[in-house]
Design a protein around this nucleic acid. Structure first.
Lengths: 140, 140
DNA sequence: GCCGGAATATTAGCCAGGCTAAGTTAGTTG
DNA sequence: CAACTAACTTAGCCTGGCTAATATTCCGGC
C-alpha cells in the first residue's frame, strides 16, 4: 500500500503545502511581486499582445490590463500598437524592465541554488529525476 | 554540468511555476478558498488560539482575525475564550466546519489521486523518492 | 459600400487576502 | 498600584483575482 496513488497523493499534498509556504517566504519583499516577475519573463522574447499574456498566465484580460498598467506606471514596460490591427495593444520591456528582470531572476536563481547546494549529490540526482514527472502533472 | 546546482535551480524554478499554475486551476471555484481550507485543517485537532494560527500560517495576527471572521460568518468555526486568560480567543471547528473540511479534503486528494493514477508505476516511485528531498528544502 | 456580429481592450465595481498602525482589554511586574 | 507587556481587533491601504459593461476595430454578407 505504500505506493498506491491515494497514499502518495496525501504525501504530495503535504509537500506542496510546504513548498507554497516556502515560496511565499522567499518572494516576500522583493522589488517586483511574483506576478509582475512572471509577466516580465513573458516579455523577454519580444513584444506580446494582451490576450497572449492573459492566456499564458491563466488570468482574465481585465486582470492583465491592470497588471500591465502598474508595470507601465513603474516604467518597466511600454505599450505599443500593431500596425496591422488597430484593436491589439502590444507590450514590451523597457530597458529598465529588462534590467530589473535580470536582477530579480539572478536573485531568485541564486537563492534556489544555495538551497540546492545544501543537498547531497544524491539528493540532487533524485530531485532532478522527479522534475519531468512533476512537469507532467496536470497535463493529462 | 548537467547536475550542478545552478542549472538544477533553473529547472526547479520552471517546474515550480508549472505547479503553482496547476494549483491555482485546481483550487479555483471550490467551496472554501485554499487559505480557509488550510485554517480549517489547523483546527482539526481541537481549539487553537489566534496567535498560534497566525504563526502556523505565516501571516500577521490581523490577517488571521479577518480570516477567522469570515469563517465564523460562514458558520464553519466558533470563537471561544480561555478561562485561564481572558485576553486569548480560541477558535474551534463547528460540526459544519468539520464536515466541510472532510468534503474538501476528499475532493482534493481525489483530484490528486487521479492525476497520479495517470502516471506509470515507475514515475510514481520516482516522485515518491523525491518527496523527502523537496520537504527538506527551506529547512536549512 | 455599409451593417451586424465577432474580436480586442479597457473601465468600473466587487471580493479575498496580505500588510502596518493604532486602539482595547487583560495580565504581570517593579 | 502604575507601568509595561501580551493578545486581539479595527481601520485603512495595497495587490491581484473576478464579472459586467463599454469603446473600438475588423470582417463577412448583402
Amino acid at each position: 500500500m505504500r505506493d498506491d496513488p491515494t497514499h502518495l497523493a496525501e504525501q504530495v499534498s503535504s509537500v506542496l503545502r510546504h513548498l507554497v509556504l516556502l515560496l511565499r517566504r522567499t518572494v516576500a519583499g522583493q522589488p517586483v511581486t511574483s506576478q509582475q516577475y512572471g509577466v516580465l519573463g513573458s516579455l523577454e522574447g519580444g513584444p506580446r499582445r494582451m490576450t497572449e499574456l492573459a492566456e499564458e498566465h491563466a488570468v482574465q484580460l481585465p486582470t492583465m490590463t491592470v497588471q500591465i498598467n502598474r508595470l507601465e506606471d513603474a516604467g518597466l514596460v511600454a505599450r505599443g500598437s500593431d500596425p496591422a490591427d488597430a484593436r491589439v495593444r502590444t507590450v514590451e520591456l523597457t530597458g529598465e524592465g529588462r534590467a530589473r528582470l535580470r536582477a530579480v531572476r539572478q536573485a531568485r536563481i541564486g537563492h534556489l541554488t544555495r538551497e540546492l547546494a545544501a543537498l547531497t549529490e544524491e539528493e540532487r540526482a533524485t530531485l532532478a529525476a522527479a522534475l519531468p514527472v512533476l512537469a507532467k502533472l496536470g497535463r493529462s
